[in-house]
Design a protein around this nucleic acid. Structure first.
Length: 497
RNA sequence: GGUCGGAUGGCCGAGUGGCUAGGCUCAGCUCUGCAAAAGCUGCUACAGCGGUUCGAAUCCGCUUUCGACCUCCA
């Protein structure tokens, strides 16, 4: 089997994945800021890196997956007084900050479970690691790369850039940063425009503030990820993931901080997922074009023609490579829904197939085709997690499976071992690696009993050629969203919309 | 303004210097009591203009155009 190659944003090329400790992998992903409800755009990184996690585990790695929760509103807003987003909103909604944080954290967790994302091994919160952050800032000051001013602490980017490579990750040149013509207030404390805050002074009216060597305040945005990732994954770890929009300044700042604090860069492989767009524009708070999870799942949003199941959203995201933009549209989601249904049902039927056991394939051409399509799946995943190509191959296998179901293809057309390979491939990729689940949970028993009674009556009617009755049953059920399907072998099945 | 990345058939989207990606839609056919589902067949695209090459959607240049980042942002 081929080896795993990962596109490293830092070097801008695919590199063979070589973990720091053989057999183990450390994965850190920037999690949500729980000052508001998550939206479709947020689903991309969580699902993308869920695949990375699942695939690494599939390959046999023991993975520690750390994904933080940013629950302290340590945001610095240029041009205004430093404010605290969480506390601001708390005032608006007349809630305690912690109440707000809890509310949105719960909503987020709920959505993650609906998406069937594997829980992180550790989910650290920013507020739970104030001490670690302060300690890291102290180290940076001691080493001479940060300075305190009026109770705030800033990282000296200019000094750093003189001695270390700065801007490599985001492809930025420091001089450009310094020459920005934009005039902003509140810059006086900084020695240079490019400097960023490690700690922000906060006046008493701020609800979220902590005591520090520099007075009361709150940590800068970037420091939490550096403090928490190094605590749980080590000063150097394997993979750091996040959205492309975090490349600068967030991840660039993480590299600078950690390099000074620990004496070396923190991450071997930087991975960035691309954005979800809507009408060609990035879906984001600032554009006011977001579709929240609850809206997506309920269909309760002006732009939505219907509700979309979390698994449909997941499939839709996986049908595109993670480094490409993905444009939202009802048509695209609906196409994904149909496609997923078809593929999932193929997989379900496949597992029920029994093979006579012959090792000789009756159809050498088909045998070879199936083998190849299955064998390519790991190669595609190893090529920077190309889920889109794996799905395409599964779709190519679907007609073979349905052909066996419909009688157009003989089960013995492929050998017993190839049948096993086919089954394993569907199970492995659809369920284990892609984490897909059926759209409808098993119907409750009572309904099932009722449906079987109805189907028996209909079968009897059909036997009598009493099609008026049989059609009547089917049509009336269909009107209520319960669809009956007659199978070739005379059996009947139903599905609830 | 600076940096970077895109422009693929009706829609969504892979992708490689030469061989049908795939999905959805649409049309026809087969099967089926009729449906539905499924199978088969068809619709064959790579923004424009130059260049490199035996050969480019894939490499280079220019043009047009869209976007991301440069400020919180997944």
């Amino acid at each position: 089997m081929s080896e795993l190659f990962i596109y490293n944003s830092y070097t801008r090329q695919k590199e063979k994945f070589e973990p720091i400790t053989p057999g183990y992998a450390g994965l850190y992903v920037c999690g949500p800021t729980v000052s508001g409800e998550s939206h479709l755009g947020h689903a991309r990184p969580y699902i993308t890196f869920d695949i990375v996690l699942r695939y690494l585990r599939h390959l046999g790695y023991k993975v520690r997956y750390v994904r933080n929760i940013t629950d302290a509103g340590h945001f610095e807003e240029e041009g205004r007084e430093a404010t605290d987003k969480v506390s601001e909103k708390a005032v608006l909604e007349k809630l305690e900050p912690m109440e707000l944080v809890t509310k949105y954290t719960n909503l987020y967790h709920n959505a993650m479970h609906l998406f069937n994302c594997v829980d992180p091994s550790i989910e650290p919160t920013a507020t739970g690691h104030i001490i670690e952050q302060i300690s890291m800032i102290e180290t940076i000051i001691e080493k001479g790369y940060a300075y305190e001013k009026n109770g705030s602490v800033y990282f000296d980017v200019v000094k750093y850039a003189a001695e270390y490579p700065y801007g490599t990750l985001s492809g930025r040149v420091l001089e450009d940063q310094l020459e920005t013509t934009r005039e902003l207030d509140g810059q006086d404390e900084k020695r240079n425009k490019a400097d960023f805050a490690l700690w922000k002074n906060a006046p008493p009216e701020h609800i979220m503030r902590w005591k520090s060597p520099w007075g009361y305040g709150f940590p800068g945005w970037h420091i939490e990820c550096s403090a928490m990732s190094s605590k749980y994954l080590g000063e150097t770890f394997d993979i750091h993931g996040g959205g492309m929009d975090l490349q600068f300044p967030h991840h660039e700042s993480e590299i600078a901080q950690s390099t000074i604090a620990h004496g070396h860069p923190p991450v071997h492989y930087w991975m960035h997922n691309n954005m979800i767009t809507i009408n060609g524009k990035k879906m984001g708070k600032s554009y006011n074009n977001v579709i929240k999870f609850t809206e997506l799942f309920s269909g309760n949003h002006p732009i939505l023609q219907q509700a979309y199941h979390p698994m449909v959203v997941r499939f839709y995201i996986l049908q595109t490579h993670y480094r490409s933009t993905l444009d939202f549209s009802n048509e695209a989601l609906q196409a994904s829904e149909k496609g997923f249904r078809r593929l999932w049902e193929a997989g379900e039927f496949l597992q029920k197939l029994t093979h006579p056991g012959a090792e000789t394939a009756a159809d050498a051409e088909l045998e070879s085709k199936v083998k190849t399509l299955c064998a390519e799946c790991p190669d595609f995943m190893n090529d920077d997690f190309n889920t889109a190509k794996v799905i395409a191959n599964l779709f190519e296998l679907a007609p073979v499976i349905y052909g066996m179901k419909g009688g157009q293809v003989n089960v013995a057309a492929i050998s017993a071992s190839t049948m096993t390979l086919l089954k394993t491939t569907f199970k492995t990729y659809l369920e284990d690696v892609f984490g897909m689940q059926p759209l409808q949970i098993q119907n409750n028993n009572k309904l099932d009993v009722v449906m079987h009674v109805l189907m028996e009556i209909r079968k009897e009617a059909k036997k009598r050629k009493d099609f008026a009755t049989s059609d009547d049953i089917r049509n009336k059920l269909a009107a209520s969203g319960v669809n009956l399907k007659d199978e070739k072998d005379g059996s009947m099945s139903y599905s609830v919309e």
